[in-house]
Protein backbone atom coordinates (compact mmCIF):
# COMPACT_ATOMS: atom_id res chain seq x y z
CA UNK A 1 0.00 0.00 0.00
CA UNK A 2 2.86 2.34 -0.81
CA UNK A 3 0.61 4.44 -3.03
CA UNK A 4 -1.68 5.26 -0.12
CA UNK A 5 -2.30 8.98 0.16
CA UNK A 6 -0.36 10.67 2.94
CA UNK A 7 -2.14 13.39 4.82
CA UNK A 8 0.14 15.81 6.57
CA UNK A 9 -1.24 17.86 9.38
CA UNK A 10 0.79 20.78 10.55
CA UNK A 11 0.83 24.44 11.39
CA UNK A 12 1.76 25.56 7.86
CA UNK A 13 -0.47 26.09 4.81
CA UNK A 14 -0.86 23.59 2.02
CA UNK A 15 0.49 24.65 -1.37
CA UNK A 16 -1.99 26.15 -3.87
CA UNK A 17 -1.31 23.24 -6.19
CA UNK A 18 -2.20 20.79 -3.46
CA UNK A 19 -5.43 22.68 -2.79
CA UNK A 20 -6.36 22.56 -6.46
CA UNK A 21 -5.72 18.83 -6.57
CA UNK A 22 -7.86 18.35 -3.51
CA UNK A 23 -10.71 20.35 -4.97
CA UNK A 24 -10.52 18.12 -8.02
CA UNK A 25 -10.61 15.06 -5.78
CA UNK A 26 -13.74 16.38 -4.10
CA UNK A 27 -15.51 17.22 -7.37
CA UNK A 28 -18.38 14.91 -6.49
CA UNK A 29 -19.03 16.97 -3.38
CA UNK A 30 -19.14 20.07 -5.57
CA UNK A 31 -21.72 18.35 -7.71
CA UNK A 32 -23.72 17.07 -4.73
CA UNK A 33 -23.88 20.50 -3.10
CA UNK A 34 -24.84 22.10 -6.41
CA UNK A 35 -27.61 19.55 -6.91
CA UNK A 36 -28.82 20.10 -3.37
CA UNK A 37 -29.18 23.83 -3.98
CA UNK A 38 -31.07 23.25 -7.20
CA UNK A 39 -33.43 20.75 -5.62
CA UNK A 40 -34.11 22.85 -2.57
CA UNK A 41 -34.49 26.18 -4.23
CA UNK A 42 -37.99 25.87 -5.50
CA UNK A 43 -39.27 22.96 -3.47
CA UNK A 44 -42.36 23.99 -1.53
CA UNK A 45 -42.93 27.10 -3.62
CA UNK A 46 -46.18 27.48 -5.52
CA UNK A 47 -44.78 28.62 -8.85
CA UNK A 48 -41.72 26.39 -8.56
CA UNK A 49 -39.18 26.73 -11.30
CA UNK A 50 -41.26 29.49 -12.92
CA UNK A 51 -39.79 31.89 -10.38
CA UNK A 52 -36.51 31.75 -12.25
CA UNK A 53 -38.23 33.40 -15.20
CA UNK A 54 -40.77 35.53 -13.35
CA UNK A 55 -38.19 37.25 -11.13
CA UNK A 56 -36.04 38.85 -13.85
CA UNK A 57 -39.10 39.56 -15.98
CA UNK A 58 -40.62 41.53 -13.12
CA UNK A 59 -37.34 43.35 -12.53
CA UNK A 60 -37.00 44.10 -16.25
CA UNK A 61 -40.63 45.21 -16.32
CA UNK A 62 -40.03 47.66 -13.49
CA UNK A 63 -36.88 48.95 -15.20
CA UNK A 64 -38.80 49.23 -18.44
CA UNK A 65 -41.46 51.33 -16.75
CA UNK A 66 -39.13 53.57 -14.73
CA UNK A 67 -36.26 54.03 -17.17
CA UNK A 68 -37.93 53.25 -20.49
CA UNK A 69 -41.36 54.84 -20.11
CA UNK A 70 -40.86 57.58 -17.54
CA UNK A 71 -37.19 58.57 -17.85
CA UNK A 72 -36.88 57.55 -21.52
CA UNK A 73 -33.30 56.40 -21.23
CA UNK A 74 -31.62 55.80 -24.64
CA UNK A 75 -31.31 52.08 -25.42
CA UNK A 76 -29.11 52.02 -28.50
CA UNK A 77 -32.29 51.60 -30.53
CA UNK A 78 -33.54 48.42 -28.80
CA UNK A 79 -36.93 47.84 -27.20
CA UNK A 80 -36.31 48.68 -23.54
CA UNK A 81 -37.63 45.37 -22.18
CA UNK A 82 -35.11 43.34 -24.21
CA UNK A 83 -32.38 45.89 -23.55
CA UNK A 84 -32.82 45.59 -19.77
CA UNK A 85 -33.53 41.87 -19.66
CA UNK A 86 -30.31 40.99 -21.53
CA UNK A 87 -28.13 42.80 -19.00
CA UNK A 88 -30.25 41.72 -16.05
CA UNK A 89 -29.66 38.07 -16.91
CA UNK A 90 -25.93 38.64 -16.53
CA UNK A 91 -26.32 40.94 -13.55
CA UNK A 92 -28.50 38.47 -11.63
CA UNK A 93 -25.97 35.75 -12.30
CA UNK A 94 -23.19 37.92 -10.91
CA UNK A 95 -25.10 39.09 -7.85
CA UNK A 96 -26.51 35.67 -6.97
CA UNK A 97 -23.09 33.99 -7.18
CA UNK A 98 -21.54 36.73 -5.06
CA UNK A 99 -24.33 36.86 -2.48
CA UNK A 100 -24.62 33.14 -2.02
CA UNK A 101 -20.90 32.55 -2.03
CA UNK A 102 -20.53 35.14 0.72
CA UNK A 103 -22.86 33.24 3.05
CA UNK A 104 -21.77 29.76 1.96
CA UNK A 105 -19.56 29.24 5.01
CA UNK A 106 -21.60 30.86 7.75
CA UNK A 107 -24.73 29.09 6.61
CA UNK A 108 -23.08 25.69 6.81
CA UNK A 109 -21.41 25.72 10.23
CA UNK A 110 -22.20 22.05 10.78
CA UNK A 111 -20.19 21.15 7.68
CA UNK A 112 -17.28 23.35 8.65
CA UNK A 113 -17.03 22.11 12.22
CA UNK A 114 -17.79 18.45 11.71
CA UNK A 115 -16.09 17.25 8.59
CA UNK A 116 -13.08 18.01 6.46
CA UNK A 117 -13.13 18.92 2.79
CA UNK A 118 -11.44 21.73 0.86
CA UNK A 119 -13.47 24.69 2.06
CA UNK A 120 -13.29 26.49 -1.30
CA UNK A 121 -15.82 23.92 -2.48
CA UNK A 122 -18.54 25.75 -0.53
CA UNK A 123 -18.39 29.11 -2.38
CA UNK A 124 -17.68 27.29 -5.66
CA UNK A 125 -20.74 25.09 -5.28
CA UNK A 126 -23.15 28.02 -5.55
CA UNK A 127 -22.26 28.40 -9.22
CA UNK A 128 -24.26 25.49 -10.75
CA UNK A 129 -27.60 26.67 -9.41
CA UNK A 130 -26.93 30.26 -10.49
CA UNK A 131 -25.86 29.02 -13.90
CA UNK A 132 -29.09 27.05 -14.33
CA UNK A 133 -31.06 30.18 -13.41
CA UNK A 134 -29.08 32.14 -15.97
CA UNK A 135 -29.74 29.61 -18.73
CA UNK A 136 -33.48 29.62 -18.00
CA UNK A 137 -33.53 33.43 -18.06
CA UNK A 138 -31.64 33.42 -21.35
CA UNK A 139 -34.14 30.93 -22.79
CA UNK A 140 -36.98 33.23 -21.75
CA UNK A 141 -35.09 36.12 -23.32
CA UNK A 142 -34.71 34.19 -26.56
CA UNK A 143 -38.42 33.40 -26.69
CA UNK A 144 -39.37 37.04 -26.16
CA UNK A 145 -36.74 38.27 -28.61
CA UNK A 146 -37.75 35.83 -31.33
CA UNK A 147 -41.42 36.69 -30.79
CA UNK A 148 -40.57 40.33 -31.44
CA UNK A 149 -38.84 39.40 -34.68
CA UNK A 150 -35.34 39.82 -33.33
CA UNK A 151 -32.73 37.37 -34.63
CA UNK A 152 -29.40 36.16 -33.29
CA UNK A 153 -26.13 35.94 -35.16
CA UNK A 154 -22.49 34.92 -34.77
CA UNK A 155 -22.03 37.57 -32.08
CA UNK A 156 -23.41 34.93 -29.69
CA UNK A 157 -19.81 33.72 -29.27
CA UNK A 158 -19.37 36.68 -26.94
CA UNK A 159 -21.99 35.26 -24.56
CA UNK A 160 -19.91 32.53 -22.86
CA UNK A 161 -16.98 34.91 -22.52
CA UNK A 162 -19.18 37.50 -20.81
CA UNK A 163 -20.63 34.89 -18.45
CA UNK A 164 -17.20 33.51 -17.64
CA UNK A 165 -15.95 36.99 -16.80
CA UNK A 166 -18.95 37.83 -14.63
CA UNK A 167 -18.66 34.49 -12.84
CA UNK A 168 -14.95 34.96 -12.15
CA UNK A 169 -15.49 38.48 -10.79
CA UNK A 170 -18.31 37.24 -8.57
CA UNK A 171 -16.27 34.30 -7.26
CA UNK A 172 -13.19 36.38 -6.57
CA UNK A 173 -15.18 38.81 -4.47
CA UNK A 174 -17.24 35.90 -3.10
CA UNK A 175 -14.21 33.98 -1.80
CA UNK A 176 -13.02 36.99 0.17
CA UNK A 177 -16.51 37.87 1.40
CA UNK A 178 -17.21 34.29 2.53
CA UNK A 179 -13.99 34.10 4.53
CA UNK A 180 -14.32 37.57 6.03
CA UNK A 181 -17.94 36.87 6.98
CA UNK A 182 -16.73 34.08 9.26
CA UNK A 183 -14.74 36.61 11.23
CA UNK A 184 -16.85 39.72 10.76
CA UNK A 185 -20.57 39.32 10.35
CA UNK A 186 -20.68 42.91 9.10
CA UNK A 187 -20.13 41.48 5.65
CA UNK A 188 -23.72 40.26 5.53
CA UNK A 189 -24.98 43.80 5.94
CA UNK A 190 -22.46 45.66 3.83
CA UNK A 191 -22.55 43.39 0.82
CA UNK A 192 -26.22 43.86 -0.27
CA UNK A 193 -25.77 47.63 -0.16
CA UNK A 194 -22.57 47.38 -2.17
CA UNK A 195 -24.26 45.16 -4.75
CA UNK A 196 -27.16 47.60 -5.02
CA UNK A 197 -24.71 50.44 -5.62
CA UNK A 198 -22.82 48.40 -8.21
CA UNK A 199 -26.09 47.79 -10.08
CA UNK A 200 -26.50 51.52 -10.66
CA UNK A 201 -22.82 51.95 -11.44
CA UNK A 202 -23.06 49.29 -14.17
CA UNK A 203 -24.68 49.36 -17.61
CA UNK A 204 -27.83 47.40 -16.75
CA UNK A 205 -30.72 49.85 -16.69
CA UNK A 206 -29.00 52.18 -19.12
CA UNK A 207 -26.35 52.06 -21.78
CA UNK A 208 -22.75 53.02 -21.00
CA UNK A 209 -23.00 55.31 -24.04
CA UNK A 210 -25.23 57.49 -21.88
CA UNK A 211 -22.28 58.25 -19.59
CA UNK A 212 -20.62 61.60 -20.48
CA UNK A 213 -17.38 61.19 -22.41
CA UNK A 214 -15.19 62.67 -19.67
CA UNK A 215 -16.46 60.08 -17.20
CA UNK A 216 -16.05 57.11 -19.53
CA UNK A 217 -12.57 56.14 -18.27
CA UNK A 218 -13.70 56.24 -14.68
CA UNK A 219 -16.88 54.40 -15.58
CA UNK A 220 -14.96 51.53 -17.14
CA UNK A 221 -12.82 51.22 -14.04
CA UNK A 222 -15.79 49.16 -12.88
CA UNK A 223 -14.75 45.73 -14.20
CA UNK A 224 -18.44 44.75 -14.55
CA UNK A 225 -19.08 47.38 -17.22
CA UNK A 226 -17.25 45.70 -20.10
CA UNK A 227 -18.65 42.16 -19.68
CA UNK A 228 -22.22 43.50 -19.33
CA UNK A 229 -21.85 45.52 -22.54
CA UNK A 230 -20.29 42.46 -24.17
CA UNK A 231 -23.31 40.43 -23.13
CA UNK A 232 -25.73 42.96 -24.59
CA UNK A 233 -23.67 43.19 -27.75
CA UNK A 234 -23.74 39.43 -28.25
CA UNK A 235 -27.50 39.18 -27.66
CA UNK A 236 -28.81 42.43 -29.15
CA UNK A 237 -26.04 43.81 -31.32
CA UNK A 238 -25.65 47.01 -29.32
CA UNK A 239 -22.22 48.72 -29.60
CA UNK A 240 -19.39 46.47 -28.42
CA UNK A 241 -17.16 47.49 -25.51
CA UNK A 242 -13.64 48.57 -26.37
CA UNK A 243 -11.07 45.79 -26.48
CA UNK A 244 -8.85 47.47 -23.90
CA UNK A 245 -11.80 47.73 -21.51
CA UNK A 246 -12.45 44.03 -21.95
CA UNK A 247 -8.81 43.16 -21.38
CA UNK A 248 -8.87 45.31 -18.28
CA UNK A 249 -11.87 43.32 -17.00
CA UNK A 250 -10.10 40.04 -17.71
CA UNK A 251 -7.08 41.26 -15.76
CA UNK A 252 -9.28 42.48 -12.91
CA UNK A 253 -11.07 39.13 -12.78
CA UNK A 254 -7.80 37.19 -12.58
CA UNK A 255 -6.41 39.48 -9.87
CA UNK A 256 -9.67 39.39 -7.93
CA UNK A 257 -9.84 35.58 -8.01
CA UNK A 258 -6.21 35.33 -6.84
CA UNK A 259 -6.68 37.87 -4.06
CA UNK A 260 -10.03 36.36 -3.01
CA UNK A 261 -8.55 32.87 -2.88
CA UNK A 262 -5.53 34.15 -0.94
CA UNK A 263 -7.73 35.90 1.63
CA UNK A 264 -9.84 32.76 1.89
CA UNK A 265 -6.85 30.50 2.42
CA UNK A 266 -5.38 32.89 4.92
CA UNK A 267 -8.42 32.67 7.16
CA UNK A 268 -9.42 29.12 6.21
CA UNK A 269 -7.32 27.44 8.89
CA UNK A 270 -9.29 29.01 11.69
CA UNK A 271 -12.81 28.65 10.21
CA UNK A 272 -13.78 25.79 12.50
CA UNK A 273 -12.58 27.71 15.57
CA UNK A 274 -14.28 30.97 14.73
CA UNK A 275 -17.49 30.16 12.91
Amino acid sequence: MSDAPVVRIGAGSASPLHTLREIWHYRDLFQALGTRDLRLRYRQTFLGIAWVVVQPLLAAGIFAFVFGTIARVPTDGQPYMLFALAALAGWNFFSSVLTRASTSLIQNPQLVTRVYFPRLILPLAVVPAALVDLLITLAAFAVIALAQGHGFDARLVGLPAAILLLGALALGAGFAAAALAVRYRDVQYVLPVAIQLALYASPVAYSSAAVPARWQALYYANPLAAPLELLRWSLLGTPAPAVQDLLYSVGAAVVLVLIGAAVFRGIERSFADEI
Binding site: R8, I9, G10, A11, Y116, S270
Partner: peptide, 9 residues
Protein backbone atom coordinates in the same frame (compact mmCIF):
# COMPACT_ATOMS: atom_id res chain seq x y z
CA UNK B 1 -8.27 18.14 9.70
CA UNK B 2 -11.26 20.14 10.84
CA UNK B 3 -8.98 22.44 12.71
CA UNK B 4 -5.22 22.94 12.48
CA UNK B 5 -2.65 22.43 15.21
CA UNK B 6 -0.89 25.32 16.90
CA UNK B 7 2.22 23.20 17.35
CA UNK B 8 3.52 19.89 16.11
CA UNK B 9 2.52 17.75 13.18
Amino acid sequence: RITTPTTGW
